[in-house]
Design a protein around this nucleic acid. Sequence first.
DNA 1: CAAATAGTGTCTCTAAGACAATATCAC
DNA 2: GTGATATTGTCTTAGAGACACTATTTG
Lengths: 278, 278
Amino acid sequence: MISEKEFLEQYDPGKYPRPSVTADVAAFMVRSSESGDYKKDSEQRLTLLLVRRGGHPFKDCWALPGGFLQPGETVESCAVREIREETNVAPVSLMPVGVFSEPGRDPRGWIISNCYACVISEDSVRQVGGDDAADAQWFEVDFDRGEDGLYLLDLTWQDVSLRAVLREEKTAFGTGFFHIEESGGLAFDHARMIAAALTALRENARRIDLIFDFLPETFTLSQLQRVQETVMNISLLPANFRRKISDYVEETDSYTSGAGHRPAKLYRKKQTEKGEEA
Amino acid sequence: MISEKEFLEQYDPGKYPRPSVTADVAAFMVRSSESGDYKKDSEQRLTLLLVRRGGHPFKDCWALPGGFLQPGETVESCAVREIREETNVAPVSLMPVGVFSEPGRDPRGWIISNCYACVISEDSVRQVGGDDAADAQWFEVDFDRGEDGLYLLDLTWQDVSLRAVLREEKTAFGTGFFHIEESGGLAFDHARMIAAALTALRENARRIDLIFDFLPETFTLSQLQRVQETVMNISLLPANFRRKISDYVEETDSYTSGAGHRPAKLYRKKQTEKGEEA
DNA sequence: CAAATAGTGTCTCTAAGACAATATCAC
DNA sequence: GTGATATTGTCTTAGAGACACTATTTG
């Protein structure tokens, strides 16, 4: 019979085999692309940050930013660190997507990956200025359901196009879970992670709180609506959208100007209100 | 410049420090306790499986069942294995609760825990027969919100009563995240895990699919209603509940009998219907 | 003025909650 | 019959969707 103190002094974690642990992050941004017509508002696209792998394995393939967990940090702080290294932006909220631990998912050996999703505003990325390193780029995202529970994931940046095919797994539970039919050239099992992250993002985008993170401090209600439409890939009527979010925003004194139409009042996110309680 | 094959041959995962990884499971069951009155239906209580720790650290404390991840298995299969070792029952669905990786959370060192919740029917536990090992018991659960975002967690089995106090963390995102004010004698940071698991369980119990796992193959609608009420700690009107779930169940030819009141038709879960699509 | 977005009012439809009323068993 | 649950029907209300209409800007 030994005491707890003695036990801990003798304890050797190296007795049992241990995996390596990583955090990978699907960082999303809504990018507005200018249109030719001065009257029309710009269109918006959902984009995802990918990095080109500089070393083996999957050298030169595109992958989610991520890295190994270091002693003394949590998985979440590791995820934040990785995103900041790539974008210079610290993500506001981090959404857990899932744990990926299938044997063989990484050719280097026993490696478990914790996947997170986060949302970054175009505004903040512009402020810190992209360093134009060709190894990190925002890809436009298309993710649609095909036939027979097949899903098509399209990631496009300039002339690079990654097309993955996934099959949805029946998962008695609500979390999206996918099998890779075609990786589309993405490294590791990242196509699965991206599909799961997109599913989680869309699922949670109806909770209004999330979509504010895509926008700067102040915004018009139309901008807010377009963000939700872009993320969830749906279409809404302005009148109804305004009603729905009216409790979550408050007016400012500013207006937009310069567009070829009626100016819009700028709003900001209302603090300490609804959605916090209950 | 080396090839990927050469790289993998040279790769040594031991170069970087690695954590130990565990899976811990919050297994819930709804237990019906017989009442004295022949006319009244039995009352139901939500219970949680805890095991008494036989060795250091936290010797003799109660803890969630769990164990170290072994090579060649996924985190999920590890969780299933642990539950089966304690109950002889293989849980149907596994719900991810969160990853707990705060430095110092385990006195043995760098140990990351993946927490899952699952739901087990009283029926299946009865069938395999509890082995009456005193080291694994179903505790009755009370989890209520106090003042100032403080939560009280009460776990009771016979004369053992564990009372933990937790504080909810503001987490820009929807997942419950708690700080331990008082552990109530629970091992490690398991009080946090249990609070997070209960939050997740209640959140998802409104998705009807989940609550079927608490019940045997066939059941009455009242039983189903009581399960949802027990899990979510709410009260519903029978008429409305029946309407809401009517699309998810189908009748059988059997009826209950023997109770001091009108017999109820037995239902079963309807397959390949609503909730699967969309 | 034309084109486009900003913003308001209102009708309808559906789902949830409340509640009343009837049915049927064991004792 | 009594007391309990089983089961059905209907009224009310809250919220989402649809749509018509007005307001205001730039060129």
